[in-house]
Amino acid sequence: LPHTAVCLVCGEAGKEDTVEEEEGKFNLMLMECSICNEIIHPGCLKIKESEGVVNDELPNCWECPKC
Rank of each mutant, 00 (worst) to 15 (best):
S34G: 09
D17N: 11
G43Q: 04
E49H: 10
S50V: 12
N27T: 08
N60C: 04
C44Q: 01
I40T: 14
L58K: 14
M29G: 06
I47Q: 08
P65F: 04
G24K: 10
G52F: 11
I35D: 05
E16Q: 12
G52Y: 10
T18P: 06
D17G: 13
V54G: 07
E12K: 08
I47K: 08
E49C: 11
P42G: 05
I39W: 08
L45Q: 13
L28W: 12
W62A: 03
E49R: 09
C64D: 01
S34V: 10
P42H: 12
K66E: 10
S34K: 11
V6D: 05
D56F: 12
N60W: 07
E49F: 10
K48Q: 14
C67E: 02
E22C: 06
G24V: 11
N27G: 09
T4S: 05
I39G: 08
L8H: 06
D17R: 10
P65L: 02
K15P: 02
E32P: 03
T18I: 08
V53A: 12
V19F: 14
C33Y: 02
L30T: 07
C33K: 02
V54D: 09
G14W: 02
C7A: 01
H41E: 00
V54W: 09
V6L: 11
E51S: 08
V9M: 10
K46P: 13
N60F: 14
K66M: 04
G52N: 09
E23N: 10
G11E: 07
M31P: 01
N55R: 11
L58A: 03
N55L: 07
E22P: 03
L28Q: 12
G11A: 08
E20H: 07
L1Y: 15
F26Y: 06
V54M: 08
A13G: 15
W62M: 04
S50E: 12
C61R: 12
V54L: 09
E32T: 12
L45H: 07
E49W: 06
E12M: 13
E23F: 10
I47R: 07
K25S: 05
E57S: 13
C44R: 01
C64M: 00
V54I: 14
P65K: 06
V53Q: 14
M31V: 06
K66P: 10
C10I: 00
E20Q: 09
L1Q: 03
L30R: 07
I39C: 07
E20Y: 02
E22K: 15
E23V: 12
V53D: 10
C61S: 12
T18Y: 04
V53F: 05
G52I: 03
S50L: 09
S34R: 06
C44S: 01
D17E: 10
K46W: 08
I47G: 12
N60T: 09
K25A: 06
N60G: 10
I47L: 08
K25G: 05
M29D: 03
I40M: 12
K15Y: 02
G24C: 04
L28D: 10
V53G: 10
G11R: 10
I40N: 14
C36R: 01
E63A: 12
L8R: 13
P42T: 02
L30A: 04
N37R: 14
L28S: 13
T4H: 00
E20L: 08
L58P: 04
L1E: 06
E16C: 02
A5D: 01
I39H: 15
N55A: 09
N60R: 10
L45G: 09
K66S: 05
E57I: 07
D56Y: 13
K46L: 12
N55E: 08
T18Q: 10
K25H: 05
E51I: 07
C36T: 00
L30H: 02
L1H: 07
L1K: 04
N60S: 08
I35G: 08
L45D: 03
C7L: 01
S50P: 13
C10W: 00
L28V: 12
G24W: 03
A13P: 15
S34Q: 12
N37E: 12
E38A: 04
L1G: 09
D56M: 14
M29C: 11
C64G: 00
G14N: 11
G14P: 08
V54A: 13
T18R: 07
P65Q: 03
E38L: 06
L8Q: 04
L28C: 08
P2C: 15
H41D: 09
N27Y: 07
I35E: 04
K48T: 14
P2S: 15
E21D: 11
S34L: 04
V53S: 12
T18C: 07
T4R: 00
K46T: 15
N60Y: 03
E16T: 14
I40F: 02
M31A: 07
N55I: 12
